[in-house]
């Protein structure tokens, strides 16, 4: 049974959802890890990415590439709307605004008024045809050995993790450049950056747009992998999962979001699979029953994160030396 649980967990850890969350965390890493912007509304960027694809393809019958583009453009617009009024203010105002904006977006797409376009609470489906038509993997067999991925799932995994790799490379190239140096100086002290002639507002805006667009790609990937979008997938807890992944992997380390996403989903996967299998075998007390699996999983994840903060506060890839410096 132990082997089964490990394979279940690996399937989750390397699956499309983990890749989508890695993209969300890469976006947050640019915002929070490198620029110091507290974005609590990454779920909103994910939502516009997912609905950009779904609405363009399913509602208006447009092509897939246009849908992805619409999602990315919507993320740019969302970043501008959030940033223009708040980026001149203290950091906490952005946090409040972003969490509210993400919730407003979710309530908007699930409203009855929006139903003809967004499908309301039922969401949209059948927009992945173009994407899976591109799948070069032959049918009729499984992929990735013991992970036993269907051709479609294997295709989403390939595209998803390639996208993650590409975005990580982009972040790596940017952060080591003079542009990244300005970004990090804003995290440390924006008045110092200003006194050295840097247009802080412009850089914060660039950071918010870039991280938001990467988050929207995560949303598009998420929607394509599930072949459906529903408004209540984009609850605030999505943002906090992405933050958990970022902190777990190591804030402000380029590879942190990848490592964080894989470990986070490995833990979730193993707990879910383990609880389900033990419960099926009647090895758990009654109150641990099948319905409780979700809640118990989250509890365990919470405890593990607390343990991480106590024993390795810098995350898996983070730099301990950075953490020990007082940031004044």
């Amino acid at each position: 049974m132990a082997a089964d649980i490990v394979f279940d967990a690996l399937r989750t850890a390397l699956g499309p959802t983990a890749a989508a969350y890695a993209l969300l965390a890469i976006g947050l890493n640019i915002h929070f890890g490198f620029t110091g912007l507290l974005n609590f509304g990454q779920a909103g960027f994910m939502l516009v990415g997912a609905y950009g694809v779904a609405i363009t393809v399913s509602t208006f019958g447009g092509p897939l590439w246009l849908g992805v583009l619409v999602g990315m453009l919507a993320a740019v617009v969302l970043a501008l709307i959030l940033g223009v009024p708040t980026l001149r203010l203290r950091a906490d105002y952005l946090a409040i605004t972003t969490i509210a904006a993400a919730e407003i977006l979710r309530l908007l797409v699930r409203s009855t008024a929006a139903e003809p376009i967004t499908g309301g609470v039922f969401g949209l489906r059948q927009f992945g045809g173009d994407f899976f038509a591109l799948n070069p993997l032959p049918d009729g067999r499984t992929y990735f050995g013991a992970l036993a991925a269907s051709p479609n799932r294997a295709w989403v995994m390939l595209v998803g993790w390639s996208l993650v790799a590409l975005m990580t490379l982009l972040v790596w190239a940017l952060i080591r450049s003079p542009w990244g140096r300005v970004i990090r100086s804003i995290r440390e002290d924006e008045d110092a950056a200003r006194s050295l002639g840097k247009n802080v507002f412009s850089y914060k805006m660039q950071s918010l747009v870039l991280g938001g667009v990467i988050g929207s790609l995560g949303g598009a990937l998420f929607a394509l992998s599930l072949q459906t979008v529903q408004p209540d997938t984009f609850l605030p807890q999505v943002t906090f999962f992405a933050f958990a992944i970022l902190i777990l992997g190591g804030t402000a380390s380029t590879g942190g979001p990848i490592v964080g996403a894989i470990i986070f989903w490995f833990l979730i996967g193993s707990l879910q699979s383990g609880l389900r299998r033990f419960s099926d075998a009647d090895m758990l007390p009654e109150f641990f029953g099948a319905q409780a699996v979700g809640a118990v999983t989250l509890t365990f994840v919470g405890v593990l994160l607390m343990a991480l903060m106590i024993f390795r506060p810098q995350g898996i890839l983070g730099d301990k030396k950075e953490l020990q410096l007082d940031v004044s």
Partner: peptide, 16 residues
């Protein structure tokens, strides 16, 4: 003083 703590001394200089 506003030293950029989590950047190296050289990075502080280059930034300016």
């Amino acid at each position: 003083t506003k030293a950029l703590s989590r950047m190296t001394v050289m990075e502080n200089m280059q930034l300016a």
